[in-house]
Every structure is written in structure tokens, then in C-alpha cells.
Design a binder for these strands. Sequence first.
RNA 1: GCGAAAGUGGCGGAAUUGGCAGACGCACCAGACUUAGGAUCUGGCGGGUAAAACCGUGGGGGUUCGAGUCCCCCCUUUCGCACCA
Length: 859
Amino acid sequence: MSDTKINIAENQPEQRELRYEPERIEEKWHARWESDPGLYAAEPHTSKRKKYYVLEMLPYPSGALHMGHVRNYAIGDALARYMWMSGYNVLHPMGWDAFGLPAENAAIKNNVPPRQWTLRNIAHMKAQMKRLGFAYDWSREVTTCLPEYYRWNQWFFLKLYAKGLAYRKKSRVNWCPECATVLANEQVVDGCCWRHEETQVETRDLEQWFVRTTNYSDELLAGLDKLEGWPEKVRTMQRNWIGRSEGALVDFKIDGGISTDKVTVFTTRIDTIFGATSIQLAPEHPAVAELVGNDPHLHSKVEDLMREQARAREAGDVGAIEKHGVFTGRHAINPFNQEKVPIWVANYILMDYGTGAIMSVPAHDERDYEFAQKYGLEIRIVILPRRIGQPPAPGEPESPVLPYTEKDSLLINSGEFSELSNQEAIEKMSDVAEKGGFGKRTVTYRLKDWGISRQRYWGTPIPMLYCEKCGVVPVPEKDLPVLLPENVDITLQGGSPLGRVPEFVNTTCPKCGGNARRETDTMDTFVDSSWYFYRYTNAQLGDRPLDTATVDYWFPIDQYIGGVEHAILHLIYSRFWTKFMRDLGIVRNDEPATRLFTQGMVIKDGAKMSKSKGNVVSPDDMVARFGADSTRMYSLFATSPDRELDWQEAGVEGVHRFLGRAYRFVMRNAHAAGKPQSGNGARPVPTTEQSPKARQIERKLHQTIKRITEDFQGRWHFNTSVAAIMEFVNQLYAAEDEIGTGKFPAALLADVQRRLVLLLAPFAPYLAVELWEMLGEKESLLRHPWPAYDPALAKEDEITYAVQVNGKLRSHLVFPADSPEEAVRERVLADEKVRAALADKQVVKVIFVPGKLVNVVAR
RNA sequence: GCGAAAGUGGCGGAAUUGGCAGACGCACCAGACUUAGGAUCUGGCGGGUAAAACCGUGGGGGUUCGAGUCCCCCCUUUCGCACCA
């Protein structure tokens, strides 16, 4: 803001009120809203309104809001305000995902305690949100790092433990050296840490707490089919993540035996077992060491395979490595035909899927085919399409790999099972294997149990004790919360920081009174975000995590809005948690949210905003220069909410300019307006008193209300909603010369202004409320009903027909809206331009599209 | 490799079901008002032409009176999955 501008404003007081100064308007209302309950939800059943729960994903208090947050909340806030004005009892809460590693890193770097750092960030970000005018019900604020919240994480953990859903086991886990802690499978992306994209995850063998998410594998999968309000993309991602696969386990006896006499393979294609020409084991398979024996050559080969696999896994391109293997010299016996097949070890077999052993069927599996080709293993065709019914003719089919599964496929070379279809064979062979005791049907999943132990300080302490006599003992419920100690020396070395706090660690066993040590790991912060949205329904409750009846009123969440990056992590954990809580009997819904919306990323100059790229736009800066309304409205106007948003400052300026136009129109003409007519959709005055321009404005008003209402109810294309308001304001400017002349009814003007303000309310709440006051309205803008439109008034009374000859646009003709087809045809065919285009051609037919277009087809 | 989404002026993007391509905004150009303008208001703005014709929605075919929209083939980008047996 230059000095010149300010001076001019002061020198010309009559100009001053017409100048749109968002900082003045917004500061004024910002201060007033501090003491205004705003968009607070009414307690269940105290309001006649229907409930509507709109939720945006809670932020991590990193220090400052970024544009992604602003966009997310601008969408949610517009919806919340629209729903509120549409007569719903809206719950629109906000909170803080306040535990997590950045607080610890900040503590190490700047020597600030994590709690202090976090709470300071929250205070700042909350102030930013308020300045941006987001209408949250702050009486329900949830901060996950406070004992009032995290004690219930501990309470839930005890419930999980009691139900056998939390357990401790030693296992190979993902370890991020940068975070100095364990990660869940969901937190490993392409072999790297989800927070440190450059840091490769290592593996460590540690004793850890796990949550049995796999108990709900099937329900988590089946539930996806019913979540029709969720993006298909998210549902697909979750389906893939759960990775259900039906098949069979089959035992192959090891010829000559080792300490165990068999190796069990997992297959989804037991019907092809007569085509199995080798067994392939993962390099880490427990039988490998014995099979390889003392042969140093074999031994080093297996080591190589293991290394290749590990390297590929760390590089994140497991699919790309070249297949290698080595023959162990030993054989296994196919239980179906007693055939001896060689046992190999191969680098493409994964120990953590199925049994880490497969039967290799080169004729009907691409990978097996590639491998068999390389090592000259036999390729035996055992299934063919029925239409052939016999071994393929030379050169047909082209690829020897034929994973036939169609109903009309047919087994060959498969003993008693020959001639069966693929499906029949799977059933029969599974029966035979089960009866014979050498196999059984099974289902495997990719989904693994959720490892929740973190060797970090800033998280919820896991409420467990280790007693010298009694072993693992849960902290009794009455002793909750297990408070996270303050003043802890934080380093990234030497394991859990809590382990270095003797006052915390050393305690007595609640069972025997003897010495006990506390668990020093903390919980994954995704525990916090798995159920926070339930806490909003009654955030102050002291004796329970939630009140079932209150939750029952508000749930499920009607609309959840957030980034697609949470499609698996947060959204699968919170679905699990809901099912667990339901089985605990404290909630009744099966799923947390009916509808999910994932908004697109905010980018600038073709790249995601990031400090390293130096293309970060600060919301504070935007608010200071253009105002909160312009910043928010631009984030909705630039593109539809589901798409990537390319931040262009000139665009914010454009929206700012538009808001100025709207502001000036209302300010200039407020005095000329008459008394508005009562009734939300009623027509203010009879047509006869209106000039054509006034009628046009009235029509445009109703069309605009219609468009915006439909956008809210349907596609959420708020960019076109904003464009519609802009068009409307442009028309108002074009008709302004008639205002005050008597041609433009004062009552219509009053109505137009009021409704314009109402339409602006979800997008530019500061400006809307300022103008609302300026119009002399006393009632709260948010409590005023959303304007209705009258379809009859929105209807055009003249229609411009596009006139084509052979599909090419030749003319435009205007007709009264209700003109019959005949009248239109007649005038079209008589039209000069049409006749010129027809020349000497013969009219074959005339296509008439009512209200739109006429196409004369001629030859 | 598999799957999904997308590709439209100088730029962000409109075009709910096949029916006037480019709404709205930015940038740009011109004018008005001004001592002044990075304010405001008015007009213009896909290419092409004197004006038309004509050409234009990643490329190539097709269906249709009519295709950005539907079908087939290909290219590019983004996202997801990727030895899952």
C-alpha cells in the first residue's frame, strides 16, 4: 500500500466510502466475531433443524497455515455457511493433531520444550484461522497433545488390549533413521519414510506393540462398496492396500526331508498345479538354510539373491529387478501327481506375502515364464480355452503364457481333473487337498497389523508396565492418564527419550506392588487422528471419551474434506477405529463418514509449493495485501475444488477487484433501495412497472441463485458459482443508469442487494456481513435463510436460436420463448443468410432442438 | 508393465444430458474521467481476412444432421499400484 493512495483517500472524503478497504472491514468484524458465538452447533435435539456435520481434516500445528490449508478450509467453510443458511444445525469444528516429531526436532534445534513450541504454534494458527474468517465452533476445539485428550487414547489402548486387539511381538519393522523411530507399513512410501522422501527405510528387529487391524480386513474391504459418497480413487487405493486374495495352501513334501518334511506354497491357481515344474522359495525362507546345507557356493548365491532383493526393496523398484535364482539340488513332491520337482531359491519371491514359497507354473504365469526361460525349466501347458480343446497348433497362440481363467477354459494334462473348467478344478482340487490333508483353502491379505510403538517422546505414553514378577501389566483405568513428563532431555540417539526419565520409568506393579518399569515407547500419532472427530461432539467430557447418544445424533459425518494423501493412512485407521468402537458398544455407526471429498493440491509455477523450491505463498501476506475474503474466494474461483490449483497472484487481485465492484454497487445504491418485500422467493413488484433492464436484472438474479444453489447441492464447482456472481454484478453495473429514475423499482433494488449479499456470504463472509449491516439489517446474516429462486422468474421470455446449415453456424434468430416449432422453422427457412447458404441446394430435413438450435440439412 | 484421471486462447479455466467452443477472471489493446494513476468506468481481445470465406478443443480415423463431449488407434502429463504367487 503506497502513501499516495492513503493521502488521496483522505483528501477526498466523498470517495473514501466507495473505496473497498478489506483491512478496515475485516478488522472490524474480526474483533466483533471474537465475542460472537458465530457458527456454534446446537446440542442434539435442542434445535428443530436437521443435523449436518461438516469436517475438515485437522492440521498438524507446524507453525503457520499454508495455502493447502486455506483451500481446504475455504471449501469446508463455504459449505458449512451454506448448510447453516439452508436451515441445518451445522457442526463445524476444528482441532490440532498436536503430537509428532517436528515438535521434538524443534526442541533439539531451538531448545524449546515440545509442549511450548506446539501450543505457541496452535495459538498462532488459530489466530490465522480466525483472521481468515473461518466459522469454527471453538467451544469444541480438540488438542491431541493435552492429557484431557490423550488419556482417552490410553483408555482405548487398554480396551484394545483387553479385547486381544493390541499385542506385543518381536518382529522385523521399518525404521527411519531420520525420525529415529519405527514406522508402520502405511508410512513407508517407495521404500522411503513418508516424512523424509529422501530417506530410505531400514529394517530392524524390535519388540513392538501392534494393533490387530487385520481382524477387520474383510469388513474394511466390504465396507468400501457401500461408501458411495467416497471418491472411487480412494476406495480403489484402500482395496489394493487390503489386498485380499483367495487361494490355497498346498504342502509339497521335501524329497529326503530336512528337519521339517515339507514346504507349503500359497497359490491362487491350484487348478494349474499339474503345470508346476519347480518350487521357488524366498531367499529368507526358513527352509533355505537347511536345503542349501554346507555348500559354500550355494550359500553365497543365496546371499546374493537376498542382497539383490533388499536393494530393490530399498530402492522402491521391486518390480524392476532382473529375476535370478539358484537350484538347491533338492526336490519336492507334487502331492497331486507325486512328481519330483526341483526346489529353487529366487529373488522375486517375497517372504512377507503368502508363505514365502510358490509353485512355479511357467506356462500360465508371466513371472514364472520369464524365470523358466532363463534357466531352461520345463514349460508345461495344462489349461486351454475350450474352443481349442487341444494342444495349440504350431505358432498359435503367440505367447506361451496363457493365464486362462475364463469360464470356457479347460484343463489338460491334469490327470483326473483334465476336462474340468478352471473354476470347477479350483473347487475339486481344493476339496481333494483338504481331504488328503496336504492343503487347504485360505485367504491372504496384504494388510498387516498396525505397529503403533514409536521410540519418540512427543506422543501418548502407552499405558503398560513390565513387572519383574507379573510380566506385562496394563495400567489400571483409574490410574489414567499416564502423564507425559515435562523437561525431558530429547535427542535422536539412544532410543526412547522416556527411557532416560527414571521418575517416569520406575513404578510399582498394580498387581503385586513390586518393582515395575513403564513402557517408554509412545503411540503413533495416527492413533490421535483415528477418533478425534468423535471427541468434537462433546469435547469437554471428563469421565468418558464420548457420549454415545450425542455421537449417535451427529454421526456419521455428512461431509469430510481433506487431502488425498490421507487416502490410506488416516482413512483406513479411522475406519478401523470406528469398527472397534462399535464393537466396544460406544458408537453405533459402522463408518465414520458418509461422504468424503479430496481437494486438489495447491501449486505455483507448475510445482508443489515448498520451501526448497522457494515458491511458497504465505496466507498472511495475501490477507495483508488483498484481504481474507479475496484470498479465500480466489482459492475457490481459480478452479474446481477437486483439481490442482495453480496459484496466480494476479488472480487474487482480480477477485479483490470484483469484491470492490460489489461493495461499491451496494454502497452507492443502498440509499435508493426501497423496503424489501417479505418472503424469501416472492416477487417484489408486478412486471408492468419494470423496465426491460429491471426485468433482465430480476431474471438474472433468479438464474444466479439457481446456479449457485445447484453448485452447492451437486458438483461443488464453486469456480462457476463465483463466476455467476461476477456476471450478475456486471449486469447490475450495466443497469445502474436506471436506478433512481423510476424505471428501476426501488423494492426490486432492495431485493437484489439483499440477495446479492446472501449469495456472497459463503464465499466472502466479511464483505457480506459488512454490506448486510450497511443495508440496515439487524438479524444475523448466518441465520438468514438462503435465498430461494423462482423458476418462472428465472425463465427467459425470448430465446435466441442458433441457426445452422449442414451443421455450420450461419445465423442467430430471436423468438418469443413459447414459439411453436412451426413458426421457428418458417422464419429460419425464410432467413436471408440461410437462403444464401443454401444456394441451389435442396433442403432434405430440418433438425429442431427446442429452445436451442435449428439445423437445416440440405444437399 | 497395470489401473485411473487429464490434455481447450498468451495464462487460470467455462461448456450437468452430443446442439452457438472459449462463460468468468488475468494479461494485453483502445477510449473516458483525471494534475496524476499500478484507482475507477466503457469497449475490444482464438487464428485468419479489408470484410468474408475458411481453420481451430494433444494427433489420426470413425459414428452423427451436428462431436471438446460417443467409439477405435496413438502421443503426452499427473496420480495410484507394481514381482502379491
